[in-house]
């Protein structure tokens, strides 16, 4: 248990804590999520482009 003095002192600071934690957590998760999703889409597209490029090359050779 906190003593009365510490309780008051922490009370002055910690009233805002949930908002501060929420602000950082939401921003971090949103930015990290956005970068991860973009990267995954990029990797998938890159694979598809390579496949199609190979297919176009193969067709050109066959012709």
């Amino acid at each position: 248990m906190l003593d009365a003095t510490n309780k008051l002192l922490y009370g002055l600071v910690l009233r805002d804590a949930p908002f501060v934690i929420a602000a950082y957590a939401v921003l971090w998760l949103a930015l990290a999520g956005y970068v991860t999703v973009t990267l995954r889409r990029l990797i998938k597209l890159d694979k598809e482009v390579k496949l199609l490029e190979d297919a176009v090359k193969a067709r050109t050779k066959a012709e």
């Binding site: 002055l12 600071v13 910690l14 009233r15 805002d16 804590a17 908002f19 501060v20 602000a23 950082y24 921003l27």
Partner: peptide, 10 residues
Amino acid sequence: PWFSQKIFFF
């Protein structure tokens, strides 16, 4: 003390 000011850094 203005603890919520810590949000400023982001």
